[in-house]
Structures are given as C-alpha cells and as structure tokens.
Simulated scan of single mutants.
Amino acid sequence: MPGSFGGARTPGAMGWLAWTGREITGWARWIWRQLTSMRVALLLLFLLSLGAIPGSLIPQSGTDETKVADFLARHTTIGPIYEKLGLFHVYSSVWFSAIYILLFVSLIGCIVPRTWQFVGQLRGRPPRAPRLLTRLPAYTTWRTAAAPEEVRDEALKLLRKRRFRAHVDGDAVAAEKGYLREVGNLAFHIALIVMLVAFAWGQLFKSEGNKLIVEGDGFANTLIQYDDFKSGS
C-alpha cells in the first residue's frame, strides 16, 4: 500500500552534516586547547631554536650568495638536499615560518586569557576568612588581653608591611600575596611576543644594499647606484 512506506526513516544528508559539524567543532576546540597550552608553547620555542641552528651554520642566500654557490659546488650530494629542505634560506622557509606563526598564535592564545584573569584578580578582593579555622590545612590560635579592634588593626598593619593585599572583613582580616610571580610570568611571555614581532618586522621590511666605491668617485643613495640590493619579504 502507498502509505506503508511512510514509517521508515533513514539518516539524511542534513543529519550527516550536523554530525560532521559537531565533530569538526570538537576537534577544533581540542586543537586550540593543545596549541595554547604551555607545554606546546615550550615545544615550539625549542623547535624554533633548533631551526635557527642550520641558519647559523649553513651559508644563507640572503646573506652571501657566493658562499652558497661555493657550498653547492663542493657538496654535490648533500647540497641539493639542503636546497630542497630550504636550509639555504632558513628564516624565509615554509617550515620555519610555520613554527614561527604557530608559536606566535600559541603565545597570544596563552597570554590573553591569563591576562584578563589576572586583571580580574587584581580588581577583586582577597577571599573572606573562614569562620572555622579547623577547615584550614594549617592554623594556630593564641589569647591576648588586647581589644579585638586593636588586634585586627595590628594584624592589618603587619600583613601590609609584609606585602600582602589585605583588607578588613568584618571582625577578621583577609589577605593574600603572590601576584608578583604572575606579573613576571606575563612579562616574560609578552617580551617573547615583542621579540617575535620585531623579528618578523625586520624580515618583512628590511632592505640591504652593497656598493663598491673607489676613492674619488661619487655616490648617490638611489636604487640603481647599488651593486646589489635586497629587500625584505
């Protein structure tokens, strides 16, 4: 009968696309979490230092074409391999640029959330003192004949003198410290980003030219006057 086929339902293209979209989103989030982790950032920084080794030991075409040509002439077997791997132009090669960009993204993705979290902690106040000291992992008690207000004020002065962030919270004093360590952490990572930006700026917008001038001749600082001229990427 014509109506007997109405009860059967099979997954359509829209369901498959929705499932694929969820999978892609999940994988993208996982990759982003891995990329912005401190472990991956340190690994990329290590790979960047390793990649800079051949750039320091092997002649670079951007610095001295003559040495590169001489190296290729003397090493007929390993020279072409180096050329295919981009070891004669390490700092503009695809693999070095990939490590560089991934490290840049990793540092930014790591620093921005931590910076906002740190700013929020600075704007907030230390947590309230617990009502039951026995819940703390370490505590002590003592008795004094001084008034509670006097004890509270002296505790506030002492904690502030020892560079705690402290404030009066009812009958107690709430205090915490350790922010300077996080400031040093963030300053180190921001300095790395500034260094990477400076390196990229130098590679993109640099210019370098050579001119052999005989004593007594003149020279005008124009492009056609140089014997060889190289610009950035």
Rank of each mutant, 00 (worst) to 15 (best):
25 T>I: 03
26 G>A: 08
26 G>P: 03
28 A>N: 11
29 R>Y: 04
36 T>Q: 02
40 V>Q: 02
40 V>C: 01
43 L>W: 12
43 L>Q: 11
44 L>E: 04
44 L>R: 07
45 L>D: 06
46 F>E: 03
46 F>P: 08
48 L>A: 12
49 S>M: 10
49 S>Q: 10
50 L>I: 11
51 G>R: 09
52 A>G: 10
56 S>F: 08
57 L>Y: 05
60 Q>Y: 11
62 G>K: 03
64 D>P: 00
64 D>C: 05
66 T>H: 12
72 L>R: 10
73 A>K: 12
75 H>S: 13
76 T>C: 01
77 T>R: 13
77 T>D: 11
77 T>Y: 12
77 T>V: 14
77 T>W: 14
77 T>Q: 11
79 G>L: 07
79 G>N: 04
82 Y>E: 00
82 Y>S: 03
83 E>V: 06
83 E>I: 07
84 K>F: 04
85 L>E: 07
85 L>S: 02
88 F>A: 10
89 H>F: 11
90 V>W: 10
90 V>I: 13
92 S>N: 12
92 S>Y: 08
94 V>T: 12
95 W>L: 06
95 W>D: 00
96 F>P: 14
96 F>A: 00
100 Y>V: 00
100 Y>G: 03
101 I>V: 08
104 F>H: 08
104 F>I: 05
109 G>C: 09
109 G>K: 01
112 V>A: 15
112 V>G: 13
113 P>R: 00
113 P>Y: 01
115 T>D: 04
116 W>S: 07
120 G>P: 01
123 R>A: 11
128 R>C: 10
130 P>K: 01
134 T>H: 12
136 L>C: 09
139 Y>W: 13
142 W>R: 09
143 R>H: 07
148 P>R: 00
149 E>K: 15
154 E>V: 14
155 A>D: 05
157 K>L: 04
160 R>K: 15
161 K>T: 13
164 F>N: 04
